[in-house]
């Protein structure tokens, strides 16, 4: 997030891709892939990295968190329905995921990343029945 804020600050006075160093461009490519799963747009234009930073910044403002900071991530190829809305790993927020898992604890297997508190119901039952058990 710090990196993205820094990259965004380079654009305060406007400008094109020339404001970014080659190292910056590598960072943008890496973050763009991580956050959107897509490569930075390929074209002969001089604002592809600017567009990428703006897109990432907008995403950050919307989701309030970056993928690497997300606590809940769905597996690729899995969507969950909440009412008539479909959520995939790219639009599911931690808040929605937490509420969904609370209501559907068996859906844990659909997630690639969940906090430790979401152990399976069987494990939770086992732990609650044996509170004094200590790890070896």
């Amino acid at each position: 997030m710090t990196q993205l804020t820094r990259l965004r600050s380079l654009l305060v006075a406007g400008g094109d891709d020339s404001v970014f160093s080659s190292e910056d461009r590598q960072i943008i490519e890496a973050i763009h892939w991580e956050e959107t799963g897509r490569k930075v747009r390929e074209c002969g234009c001089k604002d592809r990295y600017v567009d990428a930073v703006i897109e990432l910044y907008r995403k950050l403002k919307r989701t309030q968190t970056m993928t690497r900071d997300q606590k809940y991530i769905l597996r690729p190829g899995v969507i969950i329905w909440i009412g008539t809305e479909a959520y995939s790993r790219h639009n599911l927020t931690d808040k929605v995921a937490k509420a969904y898992l609370k209501a559907n604890p068996d859906a844990r297997k659909k997630f690639e990343r969940v906090p430790e508190e979401h152990v399976s119901p069987a494990v939770a039952k086992l732990v609650s029945e044996n509170p004094d058990t200590t790890e070896a």
Binding site: W33, E34, T36, G37, R38, P76, G77, I79, S88, R89
Partner: peptide, 12 residues
């Protein structure tokens, strides 16, 4: 489309 994109766009 959501399934397609989530597989295609998965983190490497």
């Amino acid at each position: 489309k959501a399934l397609f994109d989530s597989i295609l766009e998965a983190e490497a």
